[in-house]
Write a protein that binds this DNA or RNA. Structure first.
Lengths: 366, 366
DNA sequence: CTTGCGTATGATAGCGTTCTCTCAGTTAGG
DNA sequence: CCTAACTGAGAGAACGCTATCATACGCAAG
């Protein structure tokens, strides 16, 4: 590969070079055009150090003329900040991820960081590889919003040990220096289930228990606690597991789960779906079965996805402050990166809110 | 965001302690431990050049001992490949993006590239900035799935001029060297609308015309063509625009649009929604109005999102081969990056497929 | 022997930035 | 005037890696 073919040609006149589009301009190129030394250009561009107005102007002009853009790589090589943050999501379909990213980007954009997102693809191995890849490409920090697992947490811990600031969302990790932002799913689920009970339901089903190794079974636990608080014994046959737990429960899980529950000798009169997707599937199943919501069966979901206001009937659900979670996670991360926060991991738990719509109604005394 | 301004010497306040961070091992560290020269380690790691088995073993051991991981940045600085690809999506809520990424990652993972995703945030300026940021961080190529616009296409063209391989999805760009993969929305819409007409509908509404500058009004045009083919004159009052067009039409657009259409003196007997979200909103509106689907009004959507099989009633819609689009885009990009494809831009248009469910029924002769 | 070639490793020179150090000129204070 | 501090700008090294050239050994062909 021939190096820079700097052909002197004949005259030194620039002659409005019709971009040979060879390579991108470098600091040195700009310096040559502006008639200064590269360091001066660097100073002018970064506003660090003293540069006279006159020189700054010449540099600015040269930059525009050459369409110069700094090479981040070289910059970063010098141990600078990378000004990039990696975000790990379970997948992209989950609306949760979308809002999260919205909140994250809001803060990160302001702080001058670029946000790179990647998805775990479901498996722990892939997630670990992707995480390592982020680190290899030298990002400044990581926001991890995938669900925890023993293996995954271990991998995360190892990365944290490499001094990469990490903030997790909804996934407490015991590693030192890893902050965590989450929502009180337990409390949210408790309130949602209690709402059903207060509306007169005694036979309350649950769709989407989750795998045993699920690190965040808080919703199910909140449901159990609400039953207990009301003195209603838990009936295992009223709680169904999702078919195949990927990152989150889907409409299909809700659909099949509801069919199963509706088949019990004593049908539940209310159902708590682990998330809104499952709730939508449940609504579909009930409609298929000819059961009316909320008259025959009440349904509540969790997450308050955009769609849930448009289901038939509109869904009562639990809203979590996703945007705010994203913002806070990003803020925490930036603080860690810039050394403004150090020491003990922070663990913030935010409150959720019950949103009442039409899928639940006061039950006439049965 | 002022980084570090030149500070007069006397204010040595924070002293910027060189972080006690045990720095990551470098090639030189490994070389020292293995008792060889850095270049040899490089050769051993990259399997380039001659390295004796014995030395290779020593190096491997040193690498493990020091937990060494190559610094991609330094590598890239030498003009190497970065093995990373940037994917630009309009946002993350759109299920379209999810499946696309699935297809893209499938191919990219196999080829050894990391996938970095970012979102445009809706505005052209932000998109341009994000694109530039990708380039600044030196990715090997770009897959762009945002909707086109004059300004956006120009920005894209400029980046393409910097010799960054680009593949767009559903967005033909006239720049040389930019491949494009898309789906025949026109044909898909034509078939969907024709399906309504063949089912006996003469008054067919359309929800979600889109802005005039919309680069891809093909769905609307397909609808118009179907009307024309059937000899049905287009009635402007049957076509409503979404409220505020972000990246795509939402449930709200469908809801409001449907209310508007239902209010016409002569109500349409069928409605074509620009996408499934809008269709879901329309279903909700119809239910609110007490109109039955499909008996009173038929509804078709577009995209076949996962949810559309679970609406009430399940939605007839147009499925596009999103996964396949992602795969193909990724394949194209890798070919460009690796120089296996050069020259004239490729432009592949894939076919869509009508998925019939229960939101449309044969209409009795009125 | 010399030449030639394949193997294995060392030495050096960058890649594009920025950091540190140096030096020249300018102002202000005593 | 001389020191001190500030302003402005250059020279050189360094970041971690790899391309390239040079070197050293062994051995077969001329």
């Amino acid at each position: 590969m021939p190096r820079k073919t700097a052909e002197p040609k004949h005259s030194k006149a620039p002659t409005r070079v019709q971009l040979p589009v060879r390579k991108r301009a470098t600091l040195a190129d700009v310096a040559r055009v502006a008639g200064v030394v590269p360091m001066t250009v660097s100073r002018a561009i970064n506003r660090s150090g003293y540069v006279s107005e006159e020189v700054r102007a010449r540099v600015t002009e040269a930059v525009e003329q050459l369409q110069y853009r700094p090479n981040m790589l070289a910059r970063q090589l010098k141990g600078q900040r990378f000004y990039a943050v990696g975000v790990m999501l379970p997948d992209i379909a989950n609306p949760f991820g979308n809002e999260l990213v919205l909140g994250i980007k809001e803060v990160l954009d302001d702080s001058g960081y670029t946000t790179f997102i990647t998805t775990s693809g479901g498996s722990v191995e892939k997630e670990t590889a992707a995480l390592q890849s982020f680190v290899d490409h030298r990002i400044d920090g990581l926001i991890v919003a995938t669900r925890g697992s023993i293996a995954g947490d271990k991998a995360l811990g190892e990365i944290a040990a490499q001094h990469v600031p990490i903030v997790t969302i909804g996934r407490p990790v015991e590693s030192p220096g890893v902050d965590c932002v989450s929502v009180d799913h337990y409390r949210g689920a408790f309130e949602a289930a209690s709402h059903l009970i207060e509306s007169g339901h005694k036979r309350v089903g649950y769709i989407g228990i989750g795998h045993p190794e699920d690190a965040v079974p808080q919703r199910f636990e909140g449901y159990l606690a609400a039953l207990e608080a009301a003195g209603i014994p838990f009936r295992p046959e009223y709680a169904v597991r999702e078919v195949d737990a990927p990152a989150f429960a889907t409409e299909e899980d809700g659909y099949l789960g509801m069919l199963e529950l509706a088949n019990r000798k004593q049908r539940p009169t209310a159902v708590f779906a682990r998330n809104d997707f499952a709730a939508v599937g449940a609504l579909r199943a009930l409609h298929t079965l000819g059961l009316r919501v909320p008259q025959d069966i009440a349904v509540v979901g969790f997450d308050n996805i955009r769609l849930s206001a448009y289901t038939t009937p509109p869904l009562t659900t639990v809203e979590q402050p996703i945007l705010e979670q994203g913002r806070m996670a990003a803020r925490f991360l930036v603080e860690r990166i810039e050394g403004k926060a150090k020491g003990k991991p922070r663990n913030v738990v935010m409150a959720s809110k019950l949103v009442k719509r039409e899928s639940v109604m006061k039950r006439a005394k049965a």
